[in-house]
Amino acid sequence: MIRMENVSKSYKNGVHALRDVNLYIGEGEFVYIIGPTGSGKSTLIKLLDGEEIPNTGEVHVAGIDVGRLKHKKVPIYRRNIGVVFQDFRLLPSLTIFENIAFALEVIGLDKVTIRRRVREVLELVSLSEKARSFPHELSGGQQQRATIGRAIANRPKVLIADEPTGNLDPEKSMEIMGLLEKINREQRTTIVMVTHDAQLVNRYKKRTIALEEGYVVADIQKGGYIAHD
């Protein structure tokens, strides 16, 4: 589902974010990407999302060469993937219902289908009562669930989550994890989750890829957090 070959990325300011990364993630997998701040996790997500272009190497997601997409084709590619952002990125002027509906409107679904699907998704992320609220009226955990709802609304093949539990207390984090596992299990959605929550990684053991200074330093199938010095 995701294939990265010899991917390197450096920024104009001279920072080498990723160095010669080779990665293969199969369909239906649930993978953690861990690593300290500045290890290249965010860059990895931006490459998968099409927000950044690799300097060398290729990034393929769901059969699409993401690095070669034209500016105007990027949004169309993104319809295949769902991204959960750490900072939520909900449209502030739309209600939760409208926010999720928007992601379906842009891909051209009809009204009835959209309504049905949005209700389903709101049910799944337990936000049915908050449908008419605006993002700023919700707590962090609720907003995070809304973004997850939006990300999965069009049944993407891949769900990329950037620190989805980063702003939440442990109890809420477990709630989100439960939700992601459910999506992974029931929809067969491939999930790539960036985190540095050691507790979570140790508790819900999954394939774990560790990044450090732009290199992949570990890829452990059985999972568990790796201590850094």
């Binding site: 105007k72 949004p75 169309i76 993104r78 909900l90 449209l91 928007f102 842009v106 939006r150 069009n154």
Partner: peptide, 16 residues
């Protein structure tokens, strides 16, 4: 501008 970026994030074409 944040709003525009988000729209692209969820798959809205430039035209849309």
């Amino acid at each position: 501008n944040q709003e525009i970026a988000i729209m692209r994030n969820v798959g809205a074409t430039n035209h849309y």
